[in-house]
Nucleic acid binder design. Structure first.
Lengths: 141, 141
DNA sequence: TTGCGTGCAAAGGTTTTGCATGGCA
DNA sequence: TGCCATGCAAAACCTTTGCACGCAA
């Protein structure tokens, strides 16, 4: 489901294929560029940004902003994840920076509660839970 | 409850007073600098950043990153929100920017669930739920 | 007097924009 | 041929760092 005015180019297909191949992982723009450079098929950073922007608009890719001074992360939205029942939440450890993906039905209760009880419609793709992972939690004590 | 090695300076107090006076609102660093410039008591941007960084560490201020290309927002944490039994969660509308404060026992269940089920220890002061408020949700459709 | 605080200027890193060239249809 | 895509270089942006000077205790 592409935009009307769009051509099929080598870069566009390469990028889409790569993102699918690392589906479930978080990659940065420089990760992406690095990958293609190593492959011997470098893609300009600008091109990557512009394609990602489109794919975000089309709902094919999610963008996660963990921090202000680290690059944004991008993740391909798998087909299964497209229906709301598989929404993925993220937990970010404030100490070690570890990022935990949560595919957990229990969290849907939260979503429902917010919608029904507080008239707030949670966007799981933009929301990040901050806290401590177990390792850092133990160390802290 | 300040850090050990900290002095009381004019700028520090001015900043704290201002943040308290706009408690409940989100302000950016340039908002803050603008305010003091208009008052005839300009404060350096660097100083503001450095104080905010401390206050965040001390739990006096929350930092919200709405987007990559817009400045971070800061908000004073009210006294009542400080004790754990009144943990305050924030819902931020992505569209109109409205900030909703949640004092809700049900959300403590989420905290417990994350700790027990996923070994992740949520920091309610740093976590922001992003989504849409009811008004914007209706408009979107 | 000691050492933190201040703020200008410069650096740092990510993302966006301008523009000339290249490629799809 | 017409329009979009590409990617280099430069700009824009927020934030951090270096450093000399100022001020609290």
């Amino acid at each position: 489901m592409n935009n009307k005015n769009s051509y099929n180019t080598k870069q566009k297909n390469m990028l889409a294929d790569y993102l699918k191949s690392v589906s479930g992982k978080h990659v940065t723009v420089s990760d992406i560029c690095e990958h293609f450079k190593e492959q011997g098929n470098p893609i300009g950073m600008t091109t990557v940004y512009r394609h990602l922007e489109r794919m975000i608009k089309d709902g094919l890719v999610n963008k996660y902003i963990i921090d202000k001074n680290s690059p944004a992360c991008f993740e391909y939205v798998s087909e299964e994840a497209h229906d709301d029942h598989n929404a993925c939440f993220h937990c970010k450890c404030e100490k070690c920076g570890k990022l935990i993906h949560l595919h957990c039905g229990d969290l849907e209760a939260l979503q429902k509660h917010l919608a029904v009880g507080h008239k707030f419609f949670l966007n799981p793709f933009k929301t990040v839970f901050y806290g401590l992972c177990d390792e850092c939690y133990i160390k802290k004590l």
